[in-house]
Nucleic acid binder design. Structure first.
Length: 829
DNA sequence: GGATAGCTGTTACC
DNA sequence: ACCGGTAACAGCTATCC
């Protein structure tokens, strides 16, 4: 006789955090980790009914349809572990690429075999088989409305030593396991602010940068009420947060023990997918420490791919670096995305400064410093996580994908997931992911014609107005209905015709397509939340607005991206073409008002205000907007007191994407100049920005010229400090793959020889030195920061300082080289 | 054998 | 491979006359 227990019924409020799935009796089940309203850790078990679609022509006759359905119901796939059958089918009227279709919904035993079943379906009436390639968790969230980080009411029964699922509850380290029976969505607005995740930040220090090669010297943890440094090293200082362990093994065991005790919702690191977690795994393996951090007793899981991601069952491991890289980097001032710079910019606090030494050479006090340094890294990582929490939360809610995924996905994946989760509203069946060959042929098509850039005339200008189109490309997509599903095979009545360079004339229907409609909605949501947080300070509204803004901005790139499900080159190319047309027409209209247009790039137009008042300019803007198509809108970016455009280095013509402005509050806006390029030395960058400021503030070049002369004098007298002449260039690929051996490649090679860490993405720092023999190539004069040697005066004069200033002074007809050599001659005489 | 066009590579703009 | 095209420019390198 089997003993069996009656499970207790319970109704809870639940917030899903982390999703996982498992098989039981050949079927798929979800394990969803989260918290209840009392803050208890819960694992929810839910079943999942996997299915995919077979799409048929909508005109197929009923009899034939029934026959196909019956045939499909006979299919099965056998493997060593299970048999997957077609469980049931249903015939539905759906949309595919915005066109009505007949579809058979095919439920299968196990989702992993959906593709295998789909492959067997091969009737001539079948147009397509779809949705077997959508990740299981994504599909589950869509079908069961179990959106991450949104409170749900769940009725279910508590599993207690249950026979069900092979006693799964006893292996899960949560407060209780609930088998879901009914899921009810709540009015989420009420409880939104209530959930505060338990966040713990961690960081390790090692004695070798190569993963697993060295020893982990210490691990720090920081969170609310948590402040720890675990170490196997010795130091006489007794500090409350330092825990000393006998060796690395015990330290790692203590790390696991602490995490289990803290029970964090989120474990956050900085570059921890690529460093901390793999290192911990490697050392734990070496010492045979059981790294069972997962709430199901599992070890961290490392996904394969270009970038590995480290996941822990039931705990959301967030590598903040990755989230910042995709979501924030474009709006940040930092030149690198290192923890120090990023933290300084976002939370106003950076890393602790210490001098790096071999651990064997550290004194007692230096060890203490090292522990503090390690703790500080966790502390600022924690603060960053707190600061970015609203953004992570909103991204996860809007995209409707788990936190783990949205913090690691690129913009195209985020857009795609947003689409997948919103297709339901359109009754749409999802398009498939392109296969390898398809991607290849898409890529082979090469580029299409893009944005318009106005050819500027070099000079100093006064009273400049900048107009720009709000979310221009998105507005174009929405206005003209440009997408894969609205592209027509041939011209139709009332359709839009766009003439493209390569593909000739293409046509789009006026019948609304889901992609432009979705995008229109994104733009509206962006507007809504922007005005909401402008009215009153609200971090969540701001984060929400920002998330929608990023989605809107990425939508155009998505349609042009070869890896996209809804890739449509014609739509992307047409977007660029129509945007170009709109900006050119607007330029013409402004010119007709007797205003002088001096610059334009993609979605912005700069012109001279002349005698017109600001009010008159605003009236002009209003008038221009009245004549605008669809949701296209031009806005006033700003008024500028002065601006300068320079020539290209190689010719007399004006350089595009390179100008500097000053507004009425003396705020500078510098674009494209060496000042904003991190691969130029600080000496040149600082001099350039100073002379731009002197010129723009007063509209006169005399002081600027004096400053240039003084700086050159200092350079020649070797008064420039080393830091100012360092050149930083990023290593973008493995050293061996470089065809062109440039200075930074040489510098990286030198670093490697010195056993310094060299990895992709790193900024290589070097300077150009004097050499004994005459050397032609710059790379032959490369030296690392700590190498002995004088800087090369000729190089820094001719390749850094002069190039940075000559085009600017040229605007005032000053030839700096002649001026310098002239003054030299004067001193000679 | 010196000039230079063209390529590789990085970083910017939008 | 992990969103698009446009553009400037440095430094190296193949090619030309």
């Amino acid at each position: 006789m089997r003993s069996y227990k009656v499970n207790m019924k319970k109704e809870i409020k639940f917030i899903p955090l982390d999703y996982d799935y498992f098989d039981y009796n050949s079927k798929n089940y979800l394990k969803i980790f989260g918290r209840d309203e009392d803050g208890k850790q819960v694992c929810l078990i839910d079943d999942f009914e996997p299915y995919f679609w077979v799409i048929l022509n909508k005109d197929i006759d009923e009899e034939r349809l029934e026959k196909i359905k019956k045939e499909i119901e006979k299919l099965e796939v056998n493997s060593d572990t299970r048999t997957t059958k077609v469980e049931k089918t249903s015939i539905e009227n759906k949309e595919f690429l915005s066109k009505p279709v007949k579809a058979i919904k095919i439920f299968v035993t196990n989702y992993k075999d959906a593709h295998g079943i789909a492959d067997q379906i091969d009737f001539p009436e079948v147009i397509a088989r779809r949705e077997y390639d959508i990740p299981l968790i994504t599909k589950y969230i869509i079908d069961n409305n179990m959106q991450p980080l949104v409170w749900k009411k769940i009725a279910g029964e508590i599993l207690n030593n249950s026979e069900e699922f092979g006693n799964i509850d006893s292996s899960l380290q949560v407060d209780y396991v609930l088998k879901a029976q009914k899921i009810i969505s709540l009015d989420k607005t009420k409880s939104d602010s209530e959930f505060k995740p338990r966040i713990v930040a961690y960081d390790i220090e090692t004695d070798d940068f190569e993963i697993g090669k060295g020893e982990i010297l210490m691990i720090s943890l920081y969170g609310e009420g948590i402040k720890k440094v675990l170490t196997s090293k010795k130091c006489s200082h007794k500090i409350d947060y330092i825990e000393y362990y006998k060796d690395e093994t015990e330290m790692l065991e203590a790390f696991v023990k602490h995490i289990k005790k803290i029970k964090p919702d989120i474990l956050v690191g900085y570059f921890s997918d690529g460093f901390d977690m793999p290192y911990i795994r490697a050392r734990a393996e070496k010492h045979k420490v059981d790294l069972d951090l997962g709430l199901d007793g599992s070890k961290p899981f490392f996904s394969r791919g270009k970038l590995t991601s480290a996941s822990i069952a039931g705990i959301v491991h967030v590598d903040l670096y990755r989230f910042i890289e995709t979501v924030f980097s474009q709006y940040m001032q930092s030149e690198t995305l290192g923890l120090d710079e990023v933290a300084k910019e976002l939370i106003g606090e950076g890393k602790k400064n210490i001098e790096w030494k071999k651990p064997s050479k550290l004194s007692d006090d230096e060890w203490k410093n090292f522990f503090e340094y390690n703790l500080q890294d966790s502390l600022i990582t924690y603060k960053l996580a707190e600061k970015l929490w609203p953004d992570m939360l909103e991204f996860s809610r809007i995209i409707q994908e788990p936190l783990f995924d949205i913090t690691r996905q690129g913009m195209s994946q985020l857009v795609e997931n947003y689409i997948l989760h919103n297709l339901k509203k359109f009754n749409e069946i999802a398009e498939k992911r392109p296969l390898h060959d398809e991607i290849e042929s898409r890529r082979e098509l090469g580029k299409y014609e893009g944005a318009y850039v106005f050819q500027p005339i070099p000079g100093l200008y006064e009273d400049i107005v900048f107009f720009d189109f709000t979310s221009m490309y998105s507005s174009v997509i929405v206005t003209y209905n440009l997408s894969k599903s609205t592209l027509l095979e041939k011209k139709e009545k009332d359709s839009l015709e766009v003439n493209l360079e390569k593909e000739g004339k293409v046509h789009f229907t006026k019948e609304p397509g889901f992609f432009p409609e979705m995008l229109g909605n994104i733009i509206e949501m962006r507007k809504k939340y922007k005005s909401e947080y402008k009215k009153k300070e609200d971090n969540l509204a701001k984060a929400r607005s920002n998330a929608y803004k990023l989605l809107a901005n990425a939508a155009y790139g998505y349609q042009g991206f070869f890896g996209a499900r809804y890739y449509c080159r014609q739509a992307a190319a047409s977007t660029a073409t129509l945007a170009k047309k709109a900006i050119l027409e607007t330029i013409e209209k402004i010119k007709k008002l007797d205003l002088e247009v001096i610059y334009s790039d993609t979605d912005s137009i700069a012109f001279l205000r002349k005698e017109k008042t600001k009010k008159q300019i605003e009236d002009i803007l209003e008038k221009l907007n009245k004549g605008m198509q669809g949701i296209m809108e031009l806005e006033l970016e700003d008024f500028y007191k002065r601006g300068i455009w320079v020539t290209k280095r190689s010719s007399e013509s004006g350089a595009k994407k390179k100008y500097a402005l000053i507004d009425e509050k003396n705020r500078m806006k510098i674009r494209g100049f060496e000042t904003v390029r991190r691969d130029w030395c600080d000496l040149a960058r600082e001099l350039q920005s100073q002379i731009l400021e002197l010129i723009l503030k007063e509209g006169n070049e005399k002081k600027a010229l004096e400053l240039v002369k003084r700086t050159i004098k200092d350079l020649k007298e070797r008064k420039i400090e080393r830091e100012k002449i360092m050149i930083r260039t990023q290593l973008k690929k493995p050293l061996s793959e470089y065809k062109a051996i440039t200075p930074h490649v040489i510098a990286a090679q030198k670093m490697k020889e010195k056993n310094l860490p060299v990895h992709i993405g790193m900024l290589i720092k070097y300077f150009i030195s004097e050499t004994r023999e005459k050397k032609e190539l710059v790379r032959e004069k490369v030296k690392l920061e700590d190498e002995k040697g004088e800087y090369n005066i000729e190089y820094y004069l001719n390749n850094q300082l002069l190039p940075a200033v000559e085009n600017i002074l040229q605007v005032f007809s000053i030839n700096i080289e002649e001026t310098i050599s002239g003054s030299k001659q004067k001193t000679l005489f």
